[in-house]
Computed example of a mutant assay.
Amino acid sequence: MPQITVDHSKHVDFDREGFARDLHTSLVEIAAAKPEACKTQFRASEVTAFGYEDPDELGHAVVHVMIGLLAGRTEETKARLTETVLELLKKHVREDGRTVLHASAEVRDLDPSYRKFER
């Protein structure tokens, strides 16, 4: 915990390492997460469809960040985290002058059944 997943259009140009580092720092500061517990996976989507546009035109791109936390954070903390994620995306996603970026973020409580192991 926290479990972080970043789904994005494959043609989004951004500094993933810098984004993850800044996000992990923010999670420690805002949500009292332990640095060693922060884990982020990036998943590039082969096709992003937007409205009736031909996906090959690459006129739109999507980045959605999902953060799963153990229960107990206030709604204010979660809202602060999502606003921080959006600011970090503005910082780390490079603009190309032709693609419209649709960025979003969500913080949710992990289900009580959540378990993990390390080896």
Results as ranks from 00 to 15, higher is better:
Gly18Val: 11
Arg73Ala: 08
Lys34Asp: 15
Ser45Gln: 09
Pro2Met: 00
Val12Glu: 08
Ala61Thr: 01
Pro2Ser: 01
Arg21Asp: 13
Val107Trp: 15
Arg21Trp: 07
Pro112Ile: 06
His60Tyr: 07
Glu53Phe: 03
Leu27Lys: 08
Phe117Cys: 12
Gly97Ala: 05
Val100Ser: 05
Arg43Val: 01
Ser9Ala: 02
Pro55Gln: 02
Thr74Ile: 14
Leu101Asp: 08
Ala33Phe: 03
Lys91Gly: 02
Thr74Pro: 12
Gln3Asp: 10
Val12Ile: 12
His8Thr: 02
His60Gly: 04
Leu23Asp: 14
Val100Ala: 07
Ala71Arg: 14
Glu118Gln: 13
Ala37Leu: 13
Ala61Ile: 05
Gln3Tyr: 08
Glu95Phe: 02
Lys91Arg: 04
Leu89Gln: 03
Glu46Ala: 08
Leu70Cys: 04
Lys39Trp: 00
Lys116Gln: 07
Ala103Ile: 12
Glu76Thr: 13
Glu76Lys: 06
Lys10Glu: 05
Ile4Tyr: 02
Lys78Ser: 09
Gly59Leu: 08
Thr5Ser: 11
Ala105Thr: 00
His102Ala: 15
Asp96Asn: 13
Leu88Phe: 04
Ala71Tyr: 11
Leu23Lys: 15
Glu118Arg: 13
Ala44Trp: 00
Thr82Val: 10
Glu95His: 06
His60Phe: 05
Ala31Asp: 10
Ala33Gln: 06
Ser9Gly: 01
Gly97Arg: 09
Glu57Gln: 14
Glu106Leu: 15
Arg94Tyr: 07
Leu70Tyr: 03
Glu17Ala: 15
His92Phe: 08
His92Glu: 10
Gly18Lys: 09
Arg43Ser: 00
Gly72Val: 11
Glu46Asp: 06
Lys91Thr: 03
Ala105Phe: 00
Val93Leu: 09
Val65Ile: 11
Arg108Thr: 09
Tyr114His: 00
Thr48Cys: 01
Pro35Val: 11
Leu69Ile: 13
Gly72Trp: 09
Thr48Val: 02
Val65Glu: 09
Arg108Asn: 12
Val28Cys: 10
His102Leu: 13
Glu87Gln: 11
Asp7Pro: 01
Met66Pro: 02
Gly68Cys: 09
Gly68Trp: 07
Val100Asp: 00
Val47Tyr: 01
Leu27Asn: 10
Val107Leu: 15
His11Val: 02
Asp111Ser: 09
Gly72Asn: 13
Phe50Asp: 02
Ala79Lys: 08
Glu29Ala: 15
Gly97Glu: 09
